[in-house]
Structure formats: structure tokens, C-alpha cells
Simulated assay, not measured.
Amino acid sequence: MISGKNFFHNISGYTDIKIIIAQVKKLEWFEIYDFLEYVCSYINDDDVYNASNLLLKNQNSGFRFVDHILIPISDETDMKNVENAINSNFDNGHIKIATQKLSEKNPDYPKIIGESIDGVEIAIKNVVSNLYDDTPTNKFGGNIKILKKHNFLDGHPAYIEILNKLYGYASDGGIRHPKDRDYKITEADAVFAVEICSAFVSFLKYKVSSL
């Protein structure tokens, strides 16, 4: 496999666009993404990233640039949630770490899920610390109860249960402890975790800003 950087330097001496296009067409599909990611990082301009996302969207690609990282997320709402979560300063950078790991050539999917859910856990603790006099607990469910007590979260039991199970998925479902897991974690699982955890951190940001 040729890296985007190496391919860029290999064609940098060519001036004929037809020759460059012919060389690009020889690449495998994943090498083209790698090349695109390197060129965008080399230019390092927001307009280039935005234009690349428009191109990816028009080509029905399953990848988008989020915070200058090319990851397998194509839904516009999910992209915004990930960007908002990264920029929220609520999760101590865990969502960004998860997206960075998602863009790696050999992603550690359980680690991505763990980082995503850690982001939710930290975000909830930060909201408790910043908004209320209560001291955050070391229990995910305990902090959820504090937010519920202050009417920060919808009190519907099903809604609260979903949040608790989200954390339990990482703690008790074998995500952090591979020996307890008898199933394979896939890219789909990791992308789902990044999306749903980003959505919740983004939700917390919105709730705090609206108070």
C-alpha cells in the first residue's frame, strides 16, 4: 500500500493533469482516501476541507472530514454532533481521541468505544461540577441522578435507563475487558458509539448554554 504522502511526492514533478489523473486511477479506493487526506492536511485550509466534504457528499461517500480528520461518518447531523462535542470542552478531549483513532489504518474499535463513552462520563461530571453544588460521584448512575434531581435531564425513566445502559455497555459488556467479551467489535459498532456519544455531549452543551 502506498501512503498518501509518498504518492503526493511521486507525482509532484508532473505538470500534465492527465498524467496525474492516470496515476490516481491506479490507486486502490482506500489509497485514494489516504491521498486526499494527505493533500488536505498539506494545504491545511478550511475551504479545502469544506470543498472535499462537498465532493465526498456528491459522490455518496461514506467518509467525511470532521475536525480535519477523515472518518467513516456521512450523515450531516452526526458530523455536526461530533464537531460540537469536540468543541464543547465538556469531555476533556475523549471524543476527539476517538475520532482520531477511528481514522487510523488499523483502528482499535473497543478503544474507540471506550474513549467515546469516557467522554460522556467526563462531560456529565463536568456539568455537575460547574452547575451545581453537588460533588460528582465516581458512579455514572450517581451523576445521572444528580442531573435528574436538578431537573437538568428529562425525568422519564426510559430515557434515564438508556443513559445508564450506555455506560454499562462499556463497563460490563466487555468493551474495557476483552476477556469478558465473546463477540467481535466492528467498525459499525465503533462509528455508532462515536455518533451517539457525540450526540449526547452535544446535547449537554446545548442544555448548559440554554440555562
Rank of each mutant, 00 (worst) to 15 (best):
N60Y: 13
F65H: 05
F65V: 04
D67N: 13
I69R: 11
I69C: 08
P72D: 09
P72S: 02
I73V: 15
S74M: 03
S74K: 05
D75P: 00
E76V: 08
E76A: 12
T77A: 00
K80V: 11
N81D: 02
E83S: 14
E83G: 07
N84W: 01
N84K: 13
N84G: 04
I86G: 09
N87I: 08
S88F: 14
D91P: 04
N92I: 12
N92H: 11
G93T: 01
A98K: 10
T99I: 15
S103H: 06
K105F: 00
K111S: 13
K111M: 14
E115S: 13
E115M: 05
S116V: 07
I117R: 07
I117G: 03
D118M: 10
G119K: 01
E121D: 15
E121N: 13
E121C: 10
E121P: 07
I122A: 13
A123L: 12
A123P: 14
I124V: 06
N126G: 03
V128G: 03
Y132M: 08
K139I: 13
F140T: 04
N143R: 05
N143G: 09
K145A: 06
I146Y: 03
N151R: 14
N151C: 10
N151H: 14
N151V: 09
F152A: 06
